[in-house]
Design a protein around this nucleic acid. Structure first.
Lengths: 345, 345
DNA sequence: CTGAAAGCGCTTACAG
DNA sequence: CTGAAAGCGCTTACAG
């Protein structure tokens, strides 16, 4: 079964069959093989020849070489998804939404994890400029919309998650929920339940900032003073640490804690439980996102529709990748959140 | 700042600078640019020229085109990770382990989700043959080691997770824990606690099979009869459904349930709770994997070291990708599990 | 209509 | 040593 491809002496070349192999076996040009394999209809290739090519391709187990195809066509048929931390269940859900929409359109999804660091986000940016993906949807804690100017100038469709872009100067779409409004609603819920000393746990960067704004405005409106514990990371451990710190403070203990995301809030619940506090009796807890674990633990939270967010982002990218898709102006697409009341508050 | 690249008329070419652009600006050949950009030392290029090239590359914001580089060098610097379901927290943990080891070696990790279906796994196989990755680590529920013969023949390093390969006929490495022994240990723990009617919930395919074997052997040894509920999927919903089915059966109810993984066991816990049963008072529950949620819910389970599994798989692949790395025989690498006793049993 | 040539952006083997 | 040519595997614009 040697189809004339010379065994290259030094370099260990792939043993995969190429169009050239099929062409040699079928006695046609390599270009003809490409045509037959890619087009549903090939008037230039006689029926029997077409059949022979397809048969040989199947027999040899031909698979197109992806890098070659990408180089030539300048399309990778891949969408990149940049996430801060894939072990936060919110992001696998987002990825699912992306994939579910991307797959039928022929796009694969590639995940890039920034580890929540600025350094990681900068690396992602450079990585995206290597032509590995046709578009990107990402959540960035440190980079601003303006940091994507180069990508936008290079005509790479970008969808940023989690925030609105008022300036709309760059051709970058945004998909988000109203984080401030959701945080305000959660804060109001706590106040309605009679809480007056409500602390908020968040990290310096990331989605906590805008959620903190919602909390702050409602607290002020109600004449209550805000209480931020900021030096945390968006993880269970971070939430538990912040809670321990809060509990060891002098003065009256807060009666409610707002975790800027569910991971933090779950850490808070664990630390509270370990300190022998009843939830919500001794201390109420609310979170943000509604990851699967929130339901299991009875955590009151705001439903952040990760699957729909992913699906909408994918649809947006795929539209941008259609001919002329980059001509319309940048879009701000808002999805609805929902307050989920459970037993923790 | 036009560096002589002709504006291609029809095709919308990328606006990213190429080595050709740098070469034109620096007055050297494109090959010289490649040398300077890739080698730490270039005796063939005079120092000042080298400096000029590097400066121009930085100024123009040059980033190598990944498809072009992959095509030419036949290396993608990417490892693929094939998972059944990224929303099962076990897999993000695995991915983290992979990335943590792969990144310092210069490899990216690409995730492919098979959705637990045979069809999805077959697609993954074809996808892997497109030269997108230099190696793959995967968990497959339907495909057998023999199904990877083509990949192995094409010299793509493969690490399969979750099972041993006794035949070792193909050059495919395996990384796993002793699933049967861990399941046996969990079953023994339940028997030691006085349980006699122990049911096991699992799905037809996937890791449940070999875990069921461990459960079966211990039950037989103890003179107890096995009780399998098999028509499930490895998800919370699947576990809850199976539990509802079990509870609606006639005859004496089991006093303990063994979920073939934590997702199933958590579903069982939820359904039990909803049916008003106390855990472990009315019914004991054990799982398998020790995902983060298991700790939160107090689920007794077997620790499946997903991070270490990923790290070891990555190390194995990277070794295989070294010169001569494909010469040694296939390996069976076993990691240790651990029984984690919590409140659910 | 039909087919073979050009060329995507790189790396590397190989002439001067 | 020094530099320009060949060529990776494809797609597509463009001659006959």
């Amino acid at each position: 079964m040697a189809y004339g491809r010379p065994v290259t002496s030094k370099t260990q070349r792939s043993v995969r069959p190429t169009q050239k192999d099929i062409a040699a076996a079928a006695g046609v040009s390599q270009a003809a093989v490409s045509m037959v394999l890619n087009k549903a209809d090939t008037p230039s290739v006689p029926g029997p020849t077409r059949a022979r090519i397809l048969k040989l391709a199947a027999e040899l187990g031909y698979r197109p070489n992806h890098p070659a195809r990408s180089l030539r066509s300048a399309r990778t048929m891949t969408l990149a998804c940049v996430v801060p931390d894939i072990t936060n269940p919110f992001y696998p859900g987002l990825v699912r939404g992306l994939q579910t929409t991307a797959a039928p359109a022929g796009y694969d999804v590639l995940i890039y994890d920034t580890d929540r660091t600025q350094e990681g986000e900068r690396r992602a940016l450079n990585w995206l400029r290597q032509g590995r993906a046709d578009g990107v949807v990402g959540t960035f804690f440190h980079l601003q919309t303006a940091d994507f100017a180069t990508l936008a100038r290079e005509r790479l469709p970008v969808v940023l998650l989690g925030r609105q872009d008022v300036s709309r100067r760059l051709l970058i779409d945004h998909v988000f929920i109203d984080n401030a409004a959701a945080a305000a609603a959660l804060t109001r819920l706590l106040i309605r339940r009679g809480h007056r000393r409500i602390a908020m746990i968040l990290a310096e960067f990331g989605p906590g900032r805008v959620r903190a704004a919602g909390y702050r405005s409602v607290m002020r409106e109600a004449g209550l003073s805000t209480d931020f514990i900021v030096d945390s990371t968006y993880s269970e451990e971070g939430g538990a640490r912040a809670m321990q710190k809060l509990l060891s403070r002098k003065g009256p203990r807060p009666t409610a804690v707002f975790g800027a995301n569910d991971m933090l809030a779950i850490g808070v619940m664990l630390a509270a439980r370990e300190a022998g506090l009843a939830i919500p009796g001794d201390i109420a807890v609310v979170g943000f996102d509604d990851i699967p674990t929130a339901k299991l633990l009875g955590l009151t939270t705001a439903r952040h529709p990760e699957f729909d967010l992913g699906a909408l982002a994918a649809r947006t990218l795929i539209e941008r990748l259609q001919p002329g898709g980059m001509k319309s102006r940048s879009r701000n697409l808002e999805l609805k959140f929902e307050i989920i009341e459970r037993s923790s508050a």
